[in-house]
Simulated scan of single mutants.
Amino acid sequence: MSESQFTGSVPRLYDACYAPAVFVPFAPVTARAVAAGDPTHVLEVAAGTGRATVAIAAALPCSRIVATDISDDMLTYAAGHRCAPNITWRPADAQDLPFPDASFEAVACQFGAMFFPDRPRAYAEARRVLRPGGRLVLTIWDAVEHHAYARLTTVVLRRLFPDDPPRFAEQVPHGYHDTARIERDLRAGGFDRVQVARETVVGRSRSARDVATGQVTGTPLGAHISARDPALIPRVVDEVTDAFRAELADPERGPDAVAGELTAYVVTAH
């Protein structure tokens, strides 16, 4: 996936509309896994807008966190909105890290590995910059059927585009859920011990439309829809919003609130 699809308005919409319901609930899960080894020097790759970064920094207040992303726009947004004294922001490609060997005790990546064109190469780079005994922690989405918001969005897209539905969600963020494949890639990258835990959280929002707007226009999905018919973007947002309201309504938290189960794998490689 090209970093060019995470530019312009995407970082803002991704962070404001989509991240609170989808990425924030997993941030403490990722942070706990990273903090388990009490590392003092941590590298985060594909940090996006920094939602997991601040959780890791809070879990390790005396540690140094270097947060990186290949997209300058995502990194600029993160640096302007996520502040902590122990975070340093740097542009970097996870497949070609600009750090010396054995620089970190932990490398973290929340929901970024699915976008790496060459995952064994990225894992080999993580291994190179890890000190002996270091750990790589990955959080990776399960299949689209196990993500309430992505599943319902996929149903809407199949209805609106019956001959050629955009399959971004199925193929990219939710296209790397085979744990045997993940383990093979990690071993190809030089890791010899891999642990996998399946985690489910509830992603909540007080606005079904916010989540729908973020899902459709705050991710590269919007570019895939626009390639077919840009005029349909508002209709897709409307119908996804309706689908969320119909199935995921959370009236105790507000008249337009929604809540959906989200499942991911937390992978630790030694």
Results as ranks from 00 to 15, higher is better:
119 R>P: 01
64 R>W: 10
30 T>F: 05
142 D>V: 05
150 A>R: 02
265 Y>V: 09
180 A>L: 15
216 V>K: 04
45 V>Q: 01
47 A>T: 11
26 F>Q: 00
264 A>H: 06
162 P>Q: 10
234 P>L: 10
19 A>R: 02
266 V>C: 11
186 L>F: 03
25 P>H: 02
250 D>C: 14
256 D>V: 08
201 V>G: 04
223 A>R: 13
119 R>Q: 12
68 T>Q: 02
176 Y>M: 08
125 E>V: 03
219 T>R: 04
93 D>F: 09
5 Q>V: 15
200 T>A: 11
10 V>L: 08
164 D>T: 10
142 D>G: 08
106 A>L: 03
243 A>R: 12
34 V>Y: 00
100 P>H: 12
191 F>H: 02
25 P>N: 03
30 T>W: 01
138 L>G: 05
157 L>S: 05
190 G>I: 04
122 A>F: 03
117 P>K: 07
113 A>W: 05
132 P>F: 05
135 R>Q: 12
28 P>V: 03
242 D>F: 10
32 R>A: 15
111 F>N: 09
252 E>N: 11
129 V>T: 03
268 T>N: 06
121 R>N: 07
128 R>D: 02
107 V>Y: 02
46 A>I: 04
115 F>Y: 11
127 R>H: 11
38 D>Q: 14
12 R>T: 15
1 M>T: 13
66 V>I: 14
199 E>R: 14
126 A>F: 03
1 M>L: 12
260 G>V: 10
29 V>G: 01
169 A>C: 12
14 Y>I: 06
110 Q>L: 09
159 R>F: 08
265 Y>W: 13
119 R>A: 08
216 V>A: 07
58 A>Q: 14
98 P>R: 07
231 A>I: 08
145 E>H: 12
154 T>F: 00
77 Y>G: 00
80 G>E: 13
189 G>E: 00
128 R>A: 04
241 T>V: 13
248 L>K: 07
8 G>K: 11
33 A>D: 01
97 L>H: 04
197 A>C: 13
182 I>Y: 00
99 F>E: 03
66 V>Y: 01
2 S>P: 11
104 F>R: 00
